[in-house]
Simulated scan of single mutants.
Amino acid sequence: MRRGGILTNIALWLIAVFALAPLAWMVSVSFMSPGEASSFPPPLLPTKPSGANFVALFANTDMARYLANSLVLATLATLLSLTFNVMAGYAFAKLRFRGRDQLFRVLLTALVIPAQVAMIPLFLICKSLGIVNSFAGVLVPSIASVFGIFLVRQYALSIPDEMLEAARIDGASEGRIFRAIVLPTLKPILATLATFSFLGSWSDFLWPLIILNDSEKQTLPVALANLSREHVQDVELMMAGSVVTLLPVLALFLLLQRYYIAGLMAGSVKG
């Protein structure tokens, strides 16, 4: 048994090294001198580490603007997702209304539809609303998602009905019950949903590319793709841009890691 545990740990370490090696090399290349990564064989570490690539990235491009755009949009998308998905998920789990279960089954069928299929009608809706080429148009898909509603609903089912009924008997309004009882109970799944929403909005490439025409409103993934076409030979600069793109989401995951894992584990047990 002990030998089996050792072999399992070795296998997990090998998988972790295999998964993290490209990221580690990306960070290493971002500190190399121009052209150093293109030599053969490719060096693993920079000969003379330098932050010149990051300086050039922000000095010669509008990367600071794109970074600010992505931060604002990802933050707003996360807040919108938490607000609407949590309220809808709680309603489907604990509030009684006509056709609740049937409507939820209809929503679940949308999980099998690829997101790309809905982009054309979604674009036409945004065009009719006059929000094409605006941040509001970028945020429309983030308002609510079937997955987010499902995630919250499955966790909210674990809230005892007796607790909610006791609060109602004591005269608490539905709004107070939601704020004082439901939200604190949903804290682990809120962190999980916030992580998913932020990562999804931050790394989204196709929808901002479709909805935004103004280069000043571009998000970081779109700007990084444009940068790759302009500086296709400058591998070190591209890796510096990739590191800048990675750092915020990595920081968020490390910050919410404990709650994120707790939410996933609790959801898997209680769902």
Rank of each mutant, 00 (worst) to 15 (best):
A68T: 09
L111W: 12
A74D: 03
I113L: 06
F54W: 10
V86R: 02
L67V: 12
L124G: 08
F92H: 03
V117Y: 09
A68N: 11
A56F: 14
L80I: 00
L76Q: 04
D62H: 07
R105H: 08
A64Y: 13
R100H: 07
I120H: 08
S81A: 10
V86Y: 01
A93P: 01
A77D: 12
N69E: 08
R105P: 00
A56T: 11
F123Y: 12
A74W: 02
A88F: 06
Y66E: 00
S70P: 13
A93G: 02
A68S: 13
S81M: 07
L124D: 09
F123C: 10
K94R: 13
S70N: 11
F104T: 01
T83L: 15
G99W: 06
V112K: 01
L73D: 03
I125K: 04
D101R: 12
L73H: 04
R105L: 14
M63R: 12
V117S: 14
P114V: 06
A56I: 03
I120W: 06
P114R: 06
G99V: 09
L76W: 08
M87D: 05
A110K: 11
I125G: 05
L80T: 00
A52R: 13
L108G: 09
Q102R: 13
L73E: 02
A68V: 12
L111V: 10
P114S: 12
D101K: 02
N69K: 08
G51Q: 09
N69R: 02
I125M: 09
F97W: 13
Y66K: 00
A64W: 15
V55Q: 15
A115K: 11
